[in-house]
Each structure stands twice: as structure tokens, then as C-alpha cells.
Computed example of a mutant assay.
Amino acid sequence: MSKKLKVPTLKEIEDNFSEWVDDPERFEVVKKRNEQFKAAVKEGKINMRVNNADLLLLMLKADEKGMGYQTLLSSLIHLYVNDKLVDVSEVRKVVTLPKKIGKGATTKKRA
């Protein structure tokens, strides 16, 4: 029967790092600790209160995109925390979009 190893905390590893470096058995313990950390970080759960009208609109937007509302909300949070969520009204202040061309008109010059 294999010996069960206690998985140390990150602080225990940091405090005793020199003892851990060259020991293969301890290396496996550190590896297991890292896997546990990755699993814990992979997905978290939250409970929150949301205005019913906002929740309904979120559900409608998610349905338009063919995804679940929780997936859409998770995506929005991810974009926000990574500074990739863009405020369209701010973009419009900076970028000038071309005017709409009437029906049948073309932007190409004819030779």
C-alpha cells in the first residue's frame, strides 16, 4: 500500500523550499498541490441579486447569441476583468464611421 502524503500549504512549501528542491517524493507532493490549486481556480461559484428586468434582458441577449445566460454573464465578467469590455459610446467619440450610402449607390469609382 502506498504511503499517503500530506499536501502542504503554499506557505509551508515557501518556508521550506530548500528542503523540497531535490526530493522527488516531495516534488510529487508539490505537483499534486498545484493540480489542486488549478482545479480550485478553474471555476468558482457566486450568488447575486439582479434586477428582474436586467435578468430578463440578459436571458434574451443570451438566447439571441445561442448560449445560456450564465455563460454570457461569465463571459462579460471575464471581458471586464481583463479590460476587454468596450463601451460603444466611448468608441463612437473616437472613431468616425462612414455615412450610410443610399440604396443602389456604390463606393467604388467607375473607370
Score class of each variant (00 low, 15 high):
1 M>V: 06
2 S>C: 02
3 K>H: 07
3 K>G: 02
3 K>W: 04
4 K>N: 05
5 L>K: 07
5 L>M: 11
7 V>E: 04
8 P>L: 02
9 T>I: 04
10 L>F: 14
10 L>A: 14
10 L>R: 13
12 E>N: 05
14 E>W: 06
16 N>P: 07
17 F>E: 10
18 S>D: 14
18 S>W: 08
19 E>H: 06
19 E>N: 06
20 W>V: 01
21 V>H: 08
21 V>P: 00
22 D>E: 08
22 D>T: 05
23 D>Y: 03
23 D>Q: 08
23 D>L: 04
24 P>Y: 03
24 P>N: 05
26 R>Y: 03
26 R>W: 02
27 F>P: 00
27 F>W: 08
28 E>F: 05
29 V>W: 00
29 V>P: 00
30 V>S: 01
30 V>A: 12
30 V>Q: 01
31 K>D: 11
31 K>N: 07
31 K>E: 11
31 K>C: 11
32 K>I: 07
33 R>P: 03
34 N>R: 13
34 N>W: 14
34 N>A: 10
36 Q>H: 09
36 Q>N: 14
36 Q>S: 04
37 F>R: 12
37 F>K: 13
37 F>L: 15
38 K>W: 05
40 A>P: 00
44 G>D: 07
45 K>Y: 00
47 N>Y: 07
47 N>C: 08
47 N>S: 14
48 M>T: 15
49 R>W: 10
50 V>N: 02
54 D>E: 11
55 L>F: 15
55 L>A: 14
55 L>N: 12
57 L>D: 11
58 L>K: 01
60 L>G: 04
61 K>M: 07
61 K>Y: 09
61 K>E: 09
62 A>N: 02
63 D>M: 06
63 D>W: 13
64 E>R: 10
64 E>M: 09
64 E>A: 10
64 E>S: 10
66 G>C: 04
67 M>A: 01
68 G>Y: 10
68 G>L: 05
68 G>P: 01
69 Y>R: 06
72 L>E: 00
72 L>H: 02
72 L>K: 01
72 L>W: 01
74 S>Y: 00
74 S>A: 13
74 S>E: 04
74 S>G: 04
75 S>P: 01
76 L>P: 00
77 I>P: 00
77 I>F: 12
77 I>Y: 12
78 H>N: 12
78 H>Y: 15
79 L>A: 13
79 L>M: 12
79 L>R: 06
80 Y>I: 05
80 Y>R: 09
81 V>H: 08
81 V>N: 10
82 N>I: 06
84 K>W: 08
86 V>N: 06
86 V>S: 11
89 S>W: 10
90 E>V: 08
92 R>A: 13
94 V>R: 15
95 V>L: 14
95 V>P: 00
97 L>Y: 15
99 K>E: 15
99 K>S: 13
99 K>F: 07
100 K>P: 02
102 G>E: 11
102 G>R: 04
103 K>H: 04
104 G>K: 05
105 A>R: 09
106 T>P: 00
106 T>Q: 06
106 T>S: 12
107 T>K: 11
107 T>R: 12
108 K>I: 09
108 K>Y: 10
109 K>Q: 08
